[in-house]
Amino acid sequence: MSIIKTVDVKKWFGDFQALKGISMEVAEGEVLVICGPSGSGKSTFIRCINRLEQHQEGEIVVDGIELTNDLKNIEAIRSEVGMVFQSFNLFPHLTVMQNITLAPIWVRKKSRSESEEKAMELLERVGIPEQAQKFPGQLSGGQQQRVAIARALAMEPKIMLFDEPTSALDPEMIKEVLDAMKELAESGMTMIVVTHEMGFAKEVADRVMLFDEGLMVEENTPNEFFDNPKNDRTKLFLSQIL
């Protein structure tokens, strides 16, 4: 059973076509890693999945709901899909606790105490329960990204999207974020991860895709992808990045 299915998704920015027809499926509990050169449309694609960008042609179906202009569908999909950004995007005027409980309280209409309990649980899961009352500006980059993961998880999503979650981090902080993501993958979460961390891809991913110039040029298991790439473009990419 695929939980995400896209058919021939196309997207233009003005004159520029960023996605030139992407068709793919993701099964429930699967971890998919997308990589590719800069500007190839990776971010654009996963942002289309939760409607941060609007695709103009093609179909996107998430958990049986088609992403159309229907407000109800958009809301339903957004509440099932969590997203973690490259630049964290935490709300700087709220404490860590408030950041995490904001959506459960206002969007899910849960009680404050219940959401705070849940938030503490999540903070423990990502390993920073002691930072709950601090403001994001007082945390390190790695800690901020883990708060962002907790914030996304607080909505109890079925799917998590990660857009280069570690590329704004110092090397010593990357590991703590990747660990949190690994733990999440092991717990059975469906994940789409845009990343250049090939170690993570080898270890955790079920499938790896390569994007180039708005097209998906290769889709493969990690082992095949790294050891035995089919496509010349993939070989070139791997030779540059490894």
Binding site: R51, L52, M83, W106, R151
Partner: peptide, 26 residues
């Protein structure tokens, strides 16, 4: 920053919540 709007959208806030809980206070 644009990211603040996106983050608010991504956690499913409606436009009013986004404006009055996230954007305007900042």
């Amino acid at each position: 920053p644009k990211g603040q709007y996106e983050a608010a959208n991504a956690i499913g806030m409606n436009p009013f919540q986004r404006i009055f809980l996230v954007i305007v206070p900042q």
